[in-house]
Amino acid sequence: MKLIGSSTSPYVRKVRIVMAEKKLDYRFAEESPWADDSQVSASNPLGKVPCLVMEGGEAVFDSRVIVEYLDTLSPVGKLIPSTGRERAEVKTWEALADGVIDAGVLARMEVTWQHRKESERSQAWIDRQFGKIRSGLSAMSQGLGEKPYCSGIHLSLSDIAVGCALGWLAFRFPEIEWRDDYPNLARLHDKLALRPSFVDTQPPAA
């Protein structure tokens, strides 16, 4: 399998961590969808990463779809419950974490996208996205409480998704002081950061 993606993308990092935790072999192809010469659209018509290319050439895209597929490939380290309320809980945690990232990406693009003039940038839009980030962090903290992991006592996709969201915020928005505001999230992040799967996928220095 070949995974196409950027090492700075939190969605790509989520997939890479799942592959590491599941002990799956793959080749990582570094590719930025924003580069002028990007070839991502050759595999994903939406031009987005991550994109998983199978041995037969067919592609699977969207990080949530990819990680769900990957979890079925090996019984090692089951990350998503098969059915029922437990499964819905883990997928909701993933949606919450991805939603925080989505808001952050929209805010960042409003500021940094080179094809938008300064006069076209909307501070109201940026503020709205930051409001979503704050609400998401509050919900994460409340849901985690004093539990060792988001969905109980074992590592699951919930924790991987949240860890990627927190790590990306620290990487792209260091001014958001979530560590001070939510010490339980800081403890979870620090614990996850020690796992080889997180260490090996740490985004490069900006």
Rank of each mutant, 00 (worst) to 15 (best):
R121G: 04
E21P: 01
L169K: 04
I160K: 06
D36S: 14
S63Y: 05
E55K: 10
E177P: 04
D71T: 07
G145S: 08
L52N: 02
R108C: 04
A95G: 11
D180Q: 12
Y69N: 00
E55W: 07
V90W: 01
E110V: 05
S43D: 09
K91I: 11
P33N: 15
V90N: 07
F130N: 15
S138A: 15
S156E: 03
P45V: 10
V15C: 03
L46A: 09
G152Y: 13
I4D: 10
A165M: 14
W113C: 14
P203C: 09
Y182H: 13
D127Y: 08
I80Q: 09
A165N: 09
D127C: 06
F28R: 08
V111K: 13
A139T: 15
L70R: 00
A97G: 02
T112H: 14
I4T: 07
R128S: 14
I153Q: 14
P33Q: 15
R134M: 09
V76G: 01
L144W: 11
G5S: 08
A205S: 07
A161R: 04
G136P: 04
W34H: 13
Q129T: 01
K23V: 11
R64W: 02
Q129Y: 03
E94R: 04
S151E: 13
A35W: 06
D200F: 05
G136V: 06
G145Q: 06
G56S: 09
A161C: 12
K117L: 15
S151G: 09
A193L: 06
F28A: 06
D200C: 03
G84L: 06
L185F: 02
Y149A: 11
W125F: 15
K91Q: 14
A103P: 14
Y26W: 09
T83N: 13
P148Q: 08
S135H: 08
G47V: 03
R108Y: 14
V65Y: 11
T8P: 06
R179V: 11
S43P: 00
L166G: 07
N184A: 11
R64H: 03
G47T: 05
P50H: 02
K191N: 12
S158T: 00
Y69L: 09
G136H: 05
T72Y: 06
A95N: 06
K78G: 13
L79S: 02
E175V: 03
R179P: 12
R195I: 09
G131S: 08
P50N: 06
L46D: 08
A20W: 03
L169F: 09
L96F: 07
K147R: 11
G167V: 12
Q129C: 06
D190W: 09
L96Q: 09
C51K: 01
